[in-house]
Simulated assay, not measured.
Amino acid sequence: MITTRVREAALRLRDAPAYLYDLPALHDHASAVRRALPGVELYYAVKANPDTELLKTLAEHVDGFEVSSGGEHAHVSALFPGEPGLPGTPGATGKPLALGGPGKTDAELRLPCHRLHVESPNELRRLLATGREADVLLRLNPDLPVEGAALTMSGPFGMDEAGVRECLPLFTDRVRLRGLHTHLASGLDAPGLLRLAETLLDTEYDEVNLGGGMAVSYAAPESRFDWAAYGAGLAALRRPGQRVRIEPGRALTAYCGYYVTKVVDVKRVRGEAYAIVLGGTHHLRTPVTKGHDQPFTVLPTGSGPALADEPVTVVGQLCTPKDVFARKIGASLRVGDTVVFEMAGAYAWNISHHDFLMHPKPGFHYLRD
């Protein structure tokens, strides 16, 4: 359920559909995550949501940012200029950056960063050919069983053990091997991630990046990832002097975001009830991408035709049957009602196909102290 402050803010909006971000809630959540991870470096995966105000709020709590393109690198660097992230490299960001992602261009390989995640032997050779200095983590994609994952990072991501062995003799005093990057899966609970970490941290490398992948449940929003158990588990697994880094994205920002819209029509088709809301999955692609029902709260602000306490499928305005937010959810909805979709703070606006049908862009609003 939404908080009173979010409810009141949603009712004040005049430009629905719109995104509403609760920055104090993000501050509190990130602070709690930080406290649960003593001795572990915490980077935020910018791909989850690069919103400027969210990044500014997170900067107080994270050790750095993980970026996966030149565009993300430029965006974060412009927000946090200052001391170089890599000694002797002018123009680097004041907040340490890790640069990852498959298919880096030569221009991206030249970008200043604290750590560069190399995805293949060929990418390492191209990096060496630039003549730059760099501190590198090799992205290892080991053949480990991953049970219960929502998504496994196989195929084009990283390299197998043979690829790592091919890379090892290529390093120089300018391009230095610092350790491994090992993000294997998404949607795992703390015990699942710790089972992987037990194997991944049992290595001779002094630096290991375990990536993200912390579970976020859209079916049970009240069920949160157990950061305290994860932090305690990593502390027990980490050997003395070993540098451990994680890169959560969705699990940091999902809960602070809301998509606020209005019911524009209700109807029944062959006995099934539908509520059509302004906007659609071109604004909030998360439910159709992950195949779930986006949790929502109805604020009774309407006075038009109604659907009363029955299973309702909530859809948007797009000309596609895939424009669905939630299917057959018991609810009462009336034309003019305000609908607040929760858990819209990650992989939402930034991953959506904005220009399909050329509807207006949503507004963006921020709850502050």
Rank of each mutant, 00 (worst) to 15 (best):
I2C: 07
V6I: 14
R7C: 13
R12I: 04
D15W: 09
D22R: 08
R34N: 10
L37E: 08
V40S: 09
A45F: 04
N49I: 00
D51L: 05
T57V: 03
A74M: 05
A74D: 15
V76T: 08
F80G: 12
T93V: 12
K95V: 13
G100Y: 02
G103F: 06
K104M: 02
T105G: 12
D106C: 08
C113L: 05
R132D: 14
L137K: 10
L137D: 10
L138S: 07
P145L: 07
M153W: 14
S154W: 05
G158L: 01
R165A: 14
P169V: 06
F171Y: 13
T182Q: 13
L193I: 00
Y218D: 11
D226W: 04
A228Q: 09
A232Q: 06
P240E: 10
R245A: 01
I246G: 00
G249F: 00
A254W: 04
Y255V: 01
D265V: 03
E272F: 05
L278T: 10
G279N: 04
H282M: 00
D293Q: 03
T297E: 13
V314R: 06
K322P: 01
K322N: 15
R327C: 01
G330N: 12
G330I: 01
A331W: 00
A331F: 00
D337L: 04
T338F: 00
M343K: 04
G345K: 01
Y347W: 09
Y347R: 04
I351T: 15
H353C: 06
L357M: 14
P360N: 12
